[in-house]
Design a binder for these strands. Structure first.
Lengths: 135, 135
DNA sequence: CCTTGACCTTCCCATCATTGGAAGGTCTAT
DNA sequence: ATAGACCTTCCAATGATGGGAAGGTCAAGG
């Protein structure tokens, strides 16, 4: 099948398929006489693997490692688990960070009348003036 | 003061100060005869505002709008609140997304022995094979 | 006066993952 | 033969930041 169909069935855009090939994440496929890329079921399987890993937030780098481990029949699951748990930790750190932002913003928004007066605790906070009434 | 000191007291790197100036987020400051940028308290106040907004996850674009509203003495707080609450929503969406990833990964990691056997539910999932024993 | 080192200037490049587009070749169906 | 839907490569942009080169400037000390 052509790159377009491979894209459809894998969920990876044609652009990205070419990009993944260019950076060596996936192997260059066979070509037709007219230089079109040709994909088979195995290649699509790889693309689906990549898609799923990226969807779960693994970086391309991590995906590359996972792909190597997947294709290595003798690999140990320990390494895979390490990558996954490391990624979980990173995600949780990011989540905590975002939650901190949300908490602060909600507090500020709650203090803000949101009316037509020029008074605004949100801007006051951004400007560095302490928000009084720490409700 | 020079850009280095302005950077120290505002927490914005010199690189970023120049960048913010180049994209028009902040105004070009005065220059000495030898072409050094000169910052005063007002400029530092702006830099702090920008720093705080960025820390709270506002994009440069949003920060620019907030900065305009801050400097507009007659602004209404309604617009500020809209931007803030919109940002909160975006953050919460992002958080939910990350939490979904974490949930899936934790499930997979839980099912994974992490031992030296080549068996690995994490890879199986990535490969598209259903994880059995949906424990 | 001269040197040293810490500062400053501009300019270009790299990152990460992805998208967009131009210019041109190919395939399929009418 | 031609239309239009595909494919190819190559180049550029995104957003926010960091790195670094090449060169100018300033203050302190020998």
């Amino acid at each position: 099948m052509n790159i377009g169909e491979a894209s459809n069935v894998s969920g990876v855009s044609a652009k990205m398929i070419r990009y993944y090939e260019s950076i060596g994440l996936i192997r260059p496929p066979l070509r037709t006489d007219s230089n079109y890329r040709v994909y088979g079921d195995d290649e699509v399987h790889v693309l689906r693997f990549v898609k799923r890993a990226r969807t779960l937030g693994f970086s391309v780098e991590e995906t590359s490692t996972l792909l190597g481990l997947w294709q290595d029949k003798s690999r140990a699951s320990a390494e895979v688990k390490d990558i996954a748990t490391g990624h979980i930790t990173a995600l949780e750190t990011k989540i905590a960070e975002l939650q901190g932002m949300v908490k602060t913003l909600k507090h500020l928004a709650h203090c803000c009348g949101g009316d037509n007066r020029p008074d605004c605790p949100i801007l006051d906070d951004l400007a560095g003036e302490p928000t009084p009434k720490g409700h």
